[in-house]
Design a protein around this nucleic acid. Structure first.
Lengths: 137, 137
DNA sequence: ATTATGATGCAACTAAGTTGCACATGAGAT
DNA sequence: ATCTCATGTGCAACTTAGTTGCATCATAAT
């Protein structure tokens, strides 16, 4: 049986309100990570207070339902957290449309780096730049 | 012969003003990347206008002398650009002191990922979390 | 249906970063 | 060394993102 959005919210001790369901389903349908503003626009017709959206996004992030990605232009993008653990996680930034896609990287454990002595690495994330399928030159 | 800060500025068609020299030498002496605020504090005794510092940092970034690193808490950190090309570049975030260290990664070319079909990768950056030498548990 | 707790919406606020413009300074020409 | 002009700097005012406090409203358990 499919897990519903309401189930996800309840698992995280959050009430299943209209706004939360709308925000989550918007992000589920989006192929790329979205900013506060983008989500706000997507839900423009429903009267949505900006404060409520900020609070919704930050509680989702605290609970680990979403994670946020800081961008070059000092914004945050939000995307669903992959079910898998965070270690194997990559963000792909398209240099054409500037969208950020977020997908797990198989084999992230094999990423080999040469840390300076004394530095302990606990997790790693890969940031990729390039062109997405609709933008490639 | 050693390349002076003044030389670096002139190479980039920038006048060697007191402020620029102070900002650059502050960053050169810092082991970790610094925020606008941190630099501002470091130069607190010299009367330094915030706007001038913003402009200084952004022109250095444009010229490629510095690069900026967006952080989780919606700030920018600035660090000297490594002389080498950007592809082999890692940012290490200490989960103890929250400082960001920035160093080249030998063998970055060997980072293997599994991009989804249609995605073209042009550059990659590695973000590491862990503990720096003075903070390790 | 009732109710307590958690969620929402509004207004006012904070703080980061930007813009325009007048004044000051570095660096080449004299 | 001084002059000159393009480039940098500093101030004030502004913009925009994000936060806080509080009163009101809705979900979910009884």
């Amino acid at each position: 049986m499919e897990k519903t959005i309401t189930d996800i919210l309840h698992e995280n001790e959050l009430k299943a309100t209209t706004i939360r369901i709308q925000v989550l389903s918007t992000l589920m349908e989006s192929p790329s990570a979205m900013s506060h503003q983008a989500i706000s626009n997507a839900l423009a017709d429903e009267s949505l207070d900006k404060v409520t959206l900020y609070r919704t996004l930050s509680i989702f992030t605290e609970k680990g339902i979403l994670h946020k990605i800081p961008t070059e232009d000092r914004n945050w993008l939000y995307a669903l957290s992959p079910e898998v653990e965070k270690k194997a996680h990559a963000h792909f930034v398209c240099d054409g449309c500037e969208k950020v896609f977020c997908f797990p990287v198989a084999g992230a454990e094999e990423i080999v780096t040469l840390p300076k002595p004394g530095f302990q690495i606990t997790s790693q994330e890969l940031l990729l730049h390039g062109y997405c399928p609709t933008c490639h030159e």
